[in-house]
Simulated assay, not measured.
Amino acid sequence: MPPAHPSITRRPLHRRALDVQVFARDDGLFDVEASLSDTKSHDVPLAGSTRKAGDPIHEMQLQLTVDAQLTITAAASDTRWMPYAPACGEHGDAYARLVGLNLMKGFRQAVTDRLGGTQGCTHITELCQILPTAVIQALAGSVIDTREGDAAGNPPYQLDRCHALRRDSATVAQFYPRWHLSAAPASTAS
């Protein structure tokens, strides 16, 4: 992506990298491995020492196991690089509180309720927020039916969840005609 102001010289300061990988297991479950890392392009003083350029400020991982309905059956976290060692990593098994949550049903708010603020690590809790769409994307078309909807007659999950897939859009009319909603007719004044 080109810079917003191409005539201005820029220098990198900070990079946050997020990574989510999803694996199918032989037992029908799915493992989710998510990570967050922060690095600086320059040395920075940090908690009484100096963190060298390129060494992580943060490097955290979250591992989940989910079933085909996207309910979390196991969860754990690991903090490998942190600014305030060992305190940053001393949240114990706080992320085990994710077990029982469903990625498609109120997950983000439940994470905030269970792990927001001082109940967990700010960065791992933020990492949780990207998991629903990442896991849905991983399972779309194979585990999650993205064409026909569910057994109760509801439309596919992704419809009405973004601008392009509004049920009254041309995209839905073309690719999901069964689920397309025509625009409501204009009312006529009498």
Results as ranks from 00 to 15, higher is better:
residue 122 T to A: 13
residue 135 V to R: 00
residue 130 I to W: 02
residue 166 R to W: 07
residue 122 T to Y: 10
residue 158 Q to M: 12
residue 161 R to D: 03
residue 140 A to E: 06
residue 171 T to D: 14
residue 169 S to V: 06
residue 157 Y to S: 01
residue 142 S to V: 11
residue 157 Y to V: 04
residue 178 R to G: 11
residue 159 L to Q: 01
residue 172 V to Q: 10
residue 150 D to K: 05
residue 152 A to E: 14
residue 156 P to F: 06
residue 144 I to N: 05
residue 121 C to Q: 10
residue 126 E to W: 11
residue 165 L to F: 12
residue 128 C to R: 08
residue 160 D to P: 04
residue 126 E to H: 06
residue 153 G to F: 03
residue 166 R to E: 14
residue 144 I to M: 07
residue 132 P to H: 05
residue 129 Q to W: 14
residue 157 Y to H: 09
residue 175 F to V: 03
residue 139 L to S: 07
residue 124 I to E: 13
residue 155 P to A: 10
residue 165 L to G: 09
residue 141 G to D: 00
residue 167 R to I: 07
residue 173 A to W: 00
residue 132 P to E: 04
residue 156 P to I: 06
residue 158 Q to D: 10
residue 171 T to L: 10
residue 170 A to V: 13
residue 175 F to G: 01
residue 148 E to V: 02
residue 139 L to F: 08
residue 151 A to M: 06
residue 149 G to L: 07
residue 125 T to S: 13
residue 151 A to K: 09
residue 160 D to H: 02
residue 128 C to A: 11
residue 155 P to H: 02
residue 161 R to L: 11
residue 124 I to D: 11
residue 175 F to A: 04
residue 169 S to W: 08
residue 160 D to C: 03
residue 141 G to L: 00
residue 143 V to A: 04
residue 168 D to K: 04
residue 178 R to K: 15
residue 164 A to I: 08
residue 147 R to K: 15
residue 163 H to L: 14
residue 121 C to I: 08
residue 144 I to E: 00
residue 166 R to N: 11
residue 174 Q to M: 09
residue 136 I to A: 14
residue 122 T to G: 07
residue 165 L to Q: 12
residue 154 N to Q: 15
residue 165 L to W: 15
residue 148 E to Y: 05
residue 143 V to E: 08
residue 153 G to M: 01
residue 142 S to Y: 02
residue 153 G to A: 05
residue 173 A to M: 10
residue 132 P to D: 06
residue 146 T to G: 05
residue 146 T to F: 00
residue 142 S to G: 03
residue 144 I to H: 05
residue 142 S to K: 10
residue 125 T to L: 06
residue 137 Q to E: 11
residue 176 Y to T: 05
residue 147 R to V: 15
residue 132 P to Q: 04
residue 159 L to K: 06
residue 138 A to Y: 06
residue 146 T to E: 09
residue 152 A to W: 01
residue 172 V to K: 09
residue 152 A to D: 13
residue 175 F to C: 02
residue 159 L to E: 05
residue 141 G to N: 00
residue 175 F to Q: 09
residue 147 R to M: 13
residue 137 Q to I: 02
residue 154 N to M: 09
residue 166 R to T: 10
residue 175 F to N: 07
residue 137 Q to S: 10
residue 162 C to Y: 04
residue 172 V to H: 09
residue 159 L to C: 00
residue 127 L to Y: 06
residue 133 T to L: 00
residue 125 T to W: 02
residue 171 T to E: 14
residue 152 A to L: 08
residue 164 A to Q: 13
residue 139 L to H: 06
residue 130 I to V: 10
residue 161 R to N: 12
residue 145 D to V: 01
residue 178 R to T: 15
residue 177 P to E: 04
residue 174 Q to L: 12
residue 171 T to N: 11
residue 132 P to I: 03
residue 166 R to Y: 03
residue 160 D to N: 12
residue 124 I to V: 15
residue 156 P to Y: 02
